[in-house]
Each structure stands twice: as C-alpha cells, then as structure tokens.
C-alpha cells in the first residue's frame, strides 16, 4: 500500500520546527506504525538525511515510551492502542497521515517526536507511593482485599505513563495520570493511611510542573491506550479536597 507521511521535524528545543512530507509507496499493511518509521529512517539514512527521532522501547504497548499524535489523535485512530501496536492495516491505501509530537507546556520538545516527560516522574516522587521500607511487610494474605476492590485498583494501575492524556487535553492537564495513581493506591487498604496527603502532594506537584486544570472535556479518557476511566478523576478530587481542607497539617 501507499501512504504519504507528513512528519514534524525539529532539530532541537530552539528550532521552530516544520512539517516534512515523505512518500511511502510500498508499505506492508501488516507493519506496525513504528516499523513504517523504521523503514522510512533506513531510507533517510541511505539518502544521507537525519533519521526521525522518536521514543520507543518495548513495542508491546506496555512501556509507555512511544507516543505521537497521528492525524490529530494521540497514538492514532485505533481505540485502546499505543502507536507501537497500531498497524498500517488501520489505514487505507493512499491515505495521508500527519505525525506530530505530544504538545503540552509541561512536555517540552527535545527533537522531532521526542518530548521531555520527566514531570511525570516528579509527580510520582512527590507522593505516588506507599511508604513501606523493604523488610517491614506483613504476610501477603494478612489483609484480605475484596476481589472487586483489587480489580478496580488494577484498572487504575494499568496506566503506562505515556502522556497521551496530556497531549489530548485542550488544557494540557495531567489529571487522568495523577488520578490513576491516586485511585490505584487509595483504593487498596495498604495505601489508605496516606491517601489524602498523597492526593494533595501529587496535585500540588502537577500544578508546579505547568500542567493545566481539568474542565471535564473527557478527551483524555478517549485517548488513553489503557482505557483509564474519567471516574478516577472524581475519586481523586474527593481525596484532594479532604486532603486540602479537612486534614492539612498546620505545621506545613
């Protein structure tokens, strides 16, 4: 099949960047989208042109490294699918495809399709954990966790930290990412002692990083390759409000 790719090329953070068009006359529909970029890059190298930089690693949809906006949608048109698991058979022969990096104030572009998502790590460092040092755990079965609760926590815990939620949000908000972690840990009995403090600290860090606020647009839920649900944001808001107004330690 034949595809035309319009790809965002940007040499570095200071380069204004531009769209460059590449003709792909002979791609195989069974290729993944990233494999098509591999093939294109091989050709660019043969022609002596700089290959397109993009983040990727596991290519199984779980590491969260890959991420690009394909035809205006983070990770492309297929529901619940990362760019690395998107296959060309999703497109039609002759299609034109626009490929751009995540665009958000908190994710500065490094080069081409590569952006800096370290803000997510700093949000986790601010509170996205259970404070349990190695060696201090009771028996795994000491505290029963109802299946329903464990399943719901797992739904939230599936987040791969790719940043598609931020890229899809008109406000560049990271609410879905933060809510997924707050919900995952807050639902489980092990995470309950720090629940409200956690929500408050993570949200404060999110604000410091320059992410926008949530206006319930719902784009994030639609774009999320792991189908993290919007209702987790409501759950987080509850924890956040209690953490901010009901229990904020005076000493802070």
């Amino acid at each position: 099949m034949r595809l035309t790719l319009h790809v965002w090329r940007q040499k570095g953070p200071k380069d204004p960047g531009r769209i460059v068009t590449y003709d792909m006359p002979d791609v195989n529909p069974d290729m993944s989208f990233l494999e098509a970029l591999d093939v294109l890059n091989e050709r660019l190298i043969q022609r002596g042109e700089d290959p397109i930089a993009f983040d990727h690693d596991c290519r199984e949809g779980i590491c969260g490294a890959c991420g690009m906006v394909i035809n205006g949608i983070p990770h492309g048109p297929r529901r619940a699918t990362t760019a690395c698991q998107l296959h060309l058979r999703t497109f039609k022969d002759g299609d034109e495809i626009w490929v751009e990096p995540w665009r958000a104030r908190a994710f500065p572009t490094i080069k081409d399709l590569v952006v800096d998502r370290s803000a997510f790590d700093r949000i986790i460092a601010a509170g996205g954990f259970v404070s349990v040092p190695t060696g201090s755990a009771p028996d795994g079965n000491a505290l029963p966790v109802p299946k329903k609760v464990a399943d719901l926590a797992m739904d939230a815990a599936q987040c791969i930290g790719c940043g598609a939620c931020v890229a899809s949000c008109p406000n560049g908000s990271a609410m879905l990412f933060v809510a997924a972690k707050v919900s995952h840990l807050g639902l489980l009995p092990q995470g309950r002692p720090e629940r409200r403090d956690r929500a408050r600290k993570m949200v404060e860090q999110m604000d410091r990083e320059g992410f926008g606020a949530c206006t319930n647009t719902g784009e994030c839920e639609a774009a999320c390759p792991k189908e993290i649900r919007l209702e987790f944001i409501a759950r987080m808001n509850r924890d956040f409000l209690r953490g901010t107004f009901a229990e904020r330690p005076e000493a802070e």
Binding site: V132, A137, G140, V145, A153, L188, Q190
Partner: peptide, 12 residues
C-alpha cells in the same frame, strides 16, 4: 509480602 504492602494489585 513486600509487593503486596507496596500496593501491587495482585489477583484476588
């Protein structure tokens, strides 16, 4: 035990 305490949502 350690992983459960950290909040790893193992199947139940």
């Amino acid at each position: 035990d350690q992983c459960v305490a950290q909040g790893v949502p193992f199947a139940r």
